[in-house]
Amino acid sequence: MTAITLNVIVQGVLTGLVYGLMALGLSVIFGVMRVVNFAHGELTVVAMYAAFLLFEMLHLEPLIALLPIAAAFFGIGYLLQRTLISPFIGRAEHEQFILLVGLATVIVNGVLLIFGPDARPINLPYSFDSYAIGPLFIDKVRVLAAVAALAVAAALFLFFRYTRTGTAIRACADNLTGAAVVGLNVKQLYAVTFGLGLACVGAAGSLMATIADASPGLSQAYTLLAFTIVIIGGLGSMMGALVGGILIGVSEALAGFYIQPSMKSMFSFALLIIVLVLRPQGLMGRRL
């Protein structure tokens, strides 16, 4: 393998981890509530704009802005679930779909109305720095973004594994009736879950803002990207989301470099079709 290919792959892995964090939010929401969040990319773009605004107005670095943005998104998610989405739990898929498509339309056009169609870059002082390790040149922003993405994902893993609330949410996912029977407040837990899913989105969006320029046009592409990743990794599997993210990140980077940047997502979709046919539960999914 040549040094260039290795460089491309490493970049892909790092970008893929940020993708993975975004997809993790989708996976958590679907895994627990069986609600398919079709407004996922739109919300990611909102987080990117939030990071952009905080940087422009308060000179807050996206890596730090990540915390308040993720917290705010937790709140947004909690309220969204409590008000808008809760009545749709357990209803037909197409009904949830229409609701969230409506929400996505409102969000993306709201962003368009406020910020206009132009891309908004964040120019960090170290935007063009890179680390040289042997033959590898790695962008500093991508390394920082990937490390932060891993940290957020790890925090979420630990939360689900070791806290009482996390365990309770897992119980809801495993057996809803059972969870309700033992007295868990399912509505509350669902709202927390949606909040956590959106906190991932908030964090991922802040990180994404450092490696891509925020623009309303990205929303739908990100929604599809998140879905592709989650299906490849396995809907509802947290580890799967990260693995899927890395896989898609690498495939996009390789296709973008060796074939054509505009064709990169074609390979992601081809990968998605192959996985759906050969292993519909995803690479790390437990069951369908």
Binding site: L84, I98, T105, V106
Partner: peptide, 8 residues
């Protein structure tokens, strides 16, 4: 935006 709200 209005369209999306109507849908919801």
């Amino acid at each position: 935006i209005f369209y999306g709200i109507m849908l919801m």
